[in-house]
Amino acid sequence: MTASPACQHQQDARINGIAKSESDSDSGVLTRGSLRRTLPDICFELQAKIDAFLSEQTDDAVLRNVQSQVRVSMDVIQQALRRYGPDHLSLSYNGGKDCLVLLILILGCLPGWASLPSPPPSDIAANDTSAPTTSEPPQASTPVASGRPLQAIYIVSKDPFAEVEEFVERSAQQYHLDLKRYALPMRPALEAYLEDRPAVKAVFLGTRRTDPHGEFLTHFDPTDEGWPQFMRVHPVIDWHYVEIWAFIRHLEIPFCELYNRGFTSLGGVTDTRPNPALAVSGDTSKFRPAYELRDDDEERLGRDSR
């Protein structure tokens, strides 16, 4: 039986990982009703969704790989929470797919943070001078207990897309991010952020191995000499492109609508185009969605090299 156009539209929205209401006309736009939900509600729901995903039995090799990646990433996040506590942690967030996955994983870890054991001395790197020497009681610091939002920094691309700006704003509201926005180059933006948030000692980054300068990174890396000093935390460093999208779509996480138009790596209007590898039958005016790309090496074909 052939699905009706209305049913087909609903199925496509579901396939795209978008939670749409009847009033949302654009795929990828967060539902307005979701903005009223509390941070604890969101964290516990995401924890349950992730736990359910990890317990699934599947014959899909990609999903099995994603399950393994999630376990590793959540362990890294938990290490960072034990080492620093949420009051000293922040997230670099620009609405892109990688930091979106990271945000979901962090929020899913927060309900259990108060019960995490303190790290042994060997768990803190000898050169990690940014780690706090004392910590507050977990019950006082955990955002799930206090309702305080997760700290985050948004470094705005030069000539940002309106769709990215909107998605960052809407998702920051939905996920209760304490988001500071800086329309500056990266180094001065980080300097300004640490002046505004001097308690921050470590920043979660959605960097992956195939990103520029990502080849030799580990899960925990201090910033380079001459840069603002904090610990960079890379929970999704070893994820592959297809795994990022498998997680987003399987857990039905809303994402920026530009990804449905063939964009695979989001920068600014002047240096980013739909990925030519996704052109439909060579027609550069029509593009398949980002999640149909399979090769890590083709991810940045729509970005100007620097």
Rank of each mutant, 00 (worst) to 15 (best):
L105P: 08
I106K: 10
G108P: 01
C109Q: 05
L110E: 08
L110G: 09
L110W: 09
L110D: 04
W113S: 12
S115W: 09
P117N: 02
S118W: 04
P120L: 00
P121E: 03
S122K: 03
S122Q: 08
S122W: 03
D123W: 14
D123E: 15
A125N: 08
N127F: 05
N127S: 09
N127T: 06
D128L: 06
T129W: 13
S130H: 05
A131R: 13
E136Y: 11
E136A: 15
E136T: 13
P137C: 07
P138V: 07
Q139M: 13
Q139D: 13
A140R: 12
A145G: 10
A145N: 15
S146P: 08
S146M: 09
R148E: 14
P149L: 05
L150R: 03
Q151W: 06
Q151T: 13
A152W: 07
I153P: 04
I155S: 03
S157V: 02
D159K: 14
P160A: 06
F161K: 06
A162H: 11
V164A: 12
V164Q: 11
E166T: 09
V168T: 01
E169Q: 13
E169D: 13
Q173T: 05
L177E: 00
L177H: 04
D178E: 13
K180V: 06
L184Q: 10
L184D: 01
P185G: 06
P185H: 10
M186N: 00
A192G: 11
E195G: 04
D196W: 03
R197T: 04
R197Y: 01
A199M: 11
A199N: 09
